[in-house]
């Protein structure tokens, strides 16, 4: 009860604090929408042609989802941790029964709700604006949740190891942008130099993209991993990475000066 109670109290406070930042709420939803409008509706995909956006519309569903699953936790957690440090809030929390993992779990729950709603909006827009033909697999739910857990951990580390909110936001952009475009989201492996493939495999977002694609795109050519269905295998890998990054993120949160 006590652990649950602390997470509940932190989640309620975190939720209120977030939804009252109207600008942050607006751009959390507006950013992926504008990307879909620009790339999916204005530029449009060109199946079979060369260059970027050469795949069929459903191929890019993981990429559009990644905009919120990756960016929102990185920037929100990064700046939230930095804000907490600047206000001596962790110094205060360190003298309460709440643990760092409980704090991060509560922030993750807030992010999961926001990102879950944004993901629904993205899926609807992708289907309506780009004509993507996708399967609404139930696996989308654990993918989004596990992805949020993973990147909340990374965001917590960014906030802990940078020295200000500005630094945390800059770091999240510097890390998020390359990951977003080089994790088999918008650019396929074939379009990248061969030597780059190992780096793609290092990105947690790659397993999110491959798995979501395997689960939602009926035309996807995602290969099985050790004989396991790619939709499940990639989820398993992402889950392991999520546990690792969540633990590292919680551990990075300062309890002393």
């Amino acid at each position: 009860m006590s652990r649950l109670g602390r997470v509940r109290a932190e989640t309620a406070a975190g939720w209120r604090a977030f939804v009252r930042r109207r600008t942050a709420v607006f751009f959390t939803f507006f950013f992926p929408v504008i990307l879909i409008v620009i790339f999916g509706a204005l530029i449009r995909t060109d199946p079979g042609g060369g260059g970027l956006f050469a795949e069929h519309p459903a191929y890019y569903v993981p990429g559009y989802l990644a905009v919120v699953v990756l960016f929102t936790p990185l920037s929100r957690l990064g700046s939230e941790v930095a804000r907490h440090r600047e206000g001596s809030r962790f110094e205060k929390l360190a003298t309460t029964p709440q643990t760092r993992a409980e704090w991060l779990l509560a922030q993750t729950v807030v992010n999961a709700v926001i990102i879950g709603l944004a993901s629904l909006l993205i899926l609807a827009l992708v289907v309506v604006l780009t004509g993507a033909e996708i399967v609404f697999s139930p696996l989308l739910v654990p993918y989004v949740l596990v992805g949020v857990v993973c990147f909340c951990g990374v965001g917590a580390m960014l906030g802990s190891y940078t020295d200000s909110q500005d630094g945390a936001v800059a770091a999240s952009n510097a890390i998020g942008l390359p990951l977003l475009f080089l994790s088999e989201t918008f650019v396929s492996l074939e379009q990248l130099p061969g030597w780059f493939e190992p780096l793609v495999n290092l990105s947690p977002l790659t397993y999110f993209a491959r798995g979501v694609r395997a689960a939602t795109d009926p035309n996807a050519a995602t290969s099985a991993i050790a004989g396991v269905d790619p939709a499940l295998a990639n989820l398993g890998i992402l889950a392991v990475l999520a546990v690792v990054f969540f633990a590292l993120g919680a551990r990075s949160i300062p309890t002393t000066d």
Binding site: A13, G14, R16, A17, R20, R21, E86, G87, S88, R89, E91, K92, T95
Partner: peptide
């Protein structure tokens, strides 16, 4: 504990 430069979440 009340830390010296404590500033709690400001939109509560």
């Amino acid at each position: 504990v009340l830390p010296q430069s404590f500033s709690p979440p400001d939109r509560l």
